[in-house]
Structure formats: C-alpha cells, structure tokens
C-alpha cells in the first residue's frame, strides 16, 4: 500500500490504532455509569494543561496529563460527595478549564493555531517518541480496562453491592477517572481535545445497539473504535481532510448504520416476549376460567409459516394478528 511508504503516515496509523483501542475501553465504563460527557469535561480541563506547557516551555503533553488527572480526580471527588449540585460543579470546572487554557495561551504569546493542533488533533505531525508514549499508555489502559473488567463492571453497575462484596469502590472509581484522563491526553494528538469524547462514547453507543452482554459490548466497542480511527486516518489522506474530524464522522457513520438494526432487534425482542402464563395471572374472584372460541370462519391455519408473530404463552403458542391472540384448541382457535 502506497500510504505506508510515508513514515509520518505509518506513525499516524499506529497512533490511531492505539487510541482507537483505548478510548472506547475506558468509554464503556463511563457510559455504564451514565457519565458519557466526562471525557468531554476532562478534555476541556486538559486545555489548561496544554497552555501551561506552552507557557512554561515544557512538554504540553506532560502538563496536560498532570492537569487532566488532577481534574478527573476532582470531578470524581465532587461526584462522590455532592449529590445535589454535582453537574453544576462539573460545568464550572469544564468552562474554567477551557477559558483558563485560552487565557494562558495568550499570556504565553502563542497563537491560536498552536492551540488548535491540540484542540482538533494533528495526527500526521506526531513524532516517533509520541507514538511510543501513546502505545505504552494505551497498552496500560487496555490491560487494566479488560483485565479488571469484572471488578470495574461490578462497581459501575452497583456501587453499594460492590462495597459489600469487599471491593475498594473508591479506588476503582479513581482508577477509571485516571484512565479517562490518560486516554484523553493520549488521544489529544489523534482526534483533539474537543473530539476525544466522541471516540470514547460513540463506538460504545454503536456496539450496544447490537449486543446484550457487557463483555461483548466492550470488545465490539474497542474493535469499532480501532476501525474508525484507522479508517479516518486513511480517509483523510485521500480526501485531504482533518483526520480527527474524519475519525469521529466515521464512528458516527457506524452508529447511523447500527441504529436501525438495533431498533429492529429491540422490536423483534419485544414482540417475541412471552405472554404471562395462564397460571401467572390471578383470576379475579367470581370469574371462572375464560374460554372464548373464535368463530369457525377462520381464514387460514396458523403455523410456523403463516407470518403472524408466534409468542409463547404458558404451555402453548399464541398467534398475534389484528389485535387478537389466537391459540389452537382441538379443532378450533381460542381467543386468548
């Protein structure tokens, strides 16, 4: 493939591969706790970190990691303690983070274009050292997110139960926050701080359209994230678009394709859900067992091929059509 002859392209694809795997792995736990926008919030806070790096002429990635981890821990502490105004407190942090970042960048005498490479990513300019840092951090995140998945799942699913099961709930919560912060800063160079949350959340939203189990959702989200990241980089090379935007739009395209399938699956599942068995429904006192026969002039014989939804009902099957539930009984159909 001709793209691979460009060294910057190889680095870009490697960076995309690692962030595409790591971001949805953490994102799954954020979505599970209904904190889908936490990645976005950490991204905003990390802007201040980048600006501090520019101001002090140190590595913006390093300062962004430090500030993002601090911000993520602060968010977790606020979330844990305050139950009433938690979301407002988070909003204050988010806007403080981005405003502080813009202000400090100005003080550092840097142009908005410099900040833009962090806000929207510049995957084609990453260095070999960047690729290594990305690979190591992403590997750590993936190993923790997959290896500790039973524990992280239990804590996100039901905090009180997890505590009574002897898990250190606060440690696991902080672990997810720190992993989210690390992932945000790792993905900063790939998709940019403003779009990183999309790579954490959209693949998860896509995979849960099609899955019923948690591990399946996690695995499929990581696969989709990786495909979107790689595909976005390749796409941007051919159409000369911003890679970050291409990655996110590709992830959204996957979602758009999966959503109708998810709607169809959920509808089919709902229709096939068994009716309560005859013994499960208490008969009101004074009413006998209901037995109403459908009039003899029944158009056709119900069966597997008749096209009417067949729904289990106790020890037999009801066929649903035009608002009726018909069950075969001897030579006729009963209305159920």
């Amino acid at each position: 493939m001709s793209l691979l002859t460009y060294e910057f392209m190889v680095r870009a694809l490697l960076g995309a591969l690692f962030t595409g795997l790591a971001a949805p792995a953490v994102g799954t736990y954020l979505v599970q706790r209904r904190l889908a926008l936490m990645g976005d919030g950490i991204g905003h806070i990390a802007v201040t970190g980048v600006a501090l790096g520019l101001l002090t002429s140190t590595s913006p990635t390093l300062t962004a990691v430090v500030v993002a981890v601090l911000g993520a821990v602060l968010i977790e502490v606020i979330r844990e303690s305050g139950r009433t105004s938690g979301d407002v407190a988070l909003a204050l942090l988010f806007y403080g983070g981005i405003a502080g970042g813009v202000l400090i960048t100005g003080l550092a005498g840097q142009s908005a274009a410099m900040l833009n490479t962090y806000l929207f990513g510049s995957i084609t300019t990453i260095s070999t050292a960047d690729v290594w840092v990305t690979a190591v951090l992403a590997a750590v995140v993936v190993v923790v997110a997959v290896g500790l998945s039973p524990q992280l799942f239990a804590v996100a699913q039901d905090q009180e139960f997890a505590q009574v099961a002897g898990l250190h709930v606060r440690t696991y919560n902080l672990l997810v926050s720190v992993m989210a912060a690390v992932t945000v800063t790792v993905a900063m160079r790939t998709v940019g701080l403003l779009l990183v949350s999309a790579l954490m959340v959209v693949p998860v939203a896509t995979s849960q359209q099609l899955t019923r189990a948690f591990r399946m959702t996690l695995g499929a989200a990581m696969l989709l994230g990786m495909l979107a990241a790689l595909g976005g980089v390749v796409l941007s090379a051919y159409v000369n678009a911003a890679p970050g935007a291409a990655i996110v739009l590709l992830a959204l395209a996957f979602f758009a394709a999966a959503y109708p399938v998810g709607v169809w699956l959920r509808r089919r599942q709902r229709l096939a859900r068994p009716f309560p068995g005859p013994d499960d429904v208490p008969v009101p006192a004074g009413f006998g067992e209901q037995h109403s026969v459908v009039p003899e002039e029944h158009g056709h014989e119900h069966g597997e091929q008749c096209g009417h939804p067949a729904v289990p009902h106790g020890d037999h099957v009801d066929y649903v059509h035009e608002g009726h539930r018909h069950a075969a009984h001897g030579g006729h159909y009963d209305e159920h």
Partner: peptide, 16 residues
C-alpha cells in the same frame, strides 16, 4: 445500567 449486561454477568459480580 447504561451498558447492556447479561444475567450471567450481573450474577457473576456476586462472586468477586
């Protein structure tokens, strides 16, 4: 919760 989980997965967290 926010992500699909199977009956077996939820019950398995009781074993942790």
């Amino acid at each position: 919760s926010g992500v699909p989980a199977s009956v077996r997965e939820v019950v398995a967290s009781g074993r942790l």
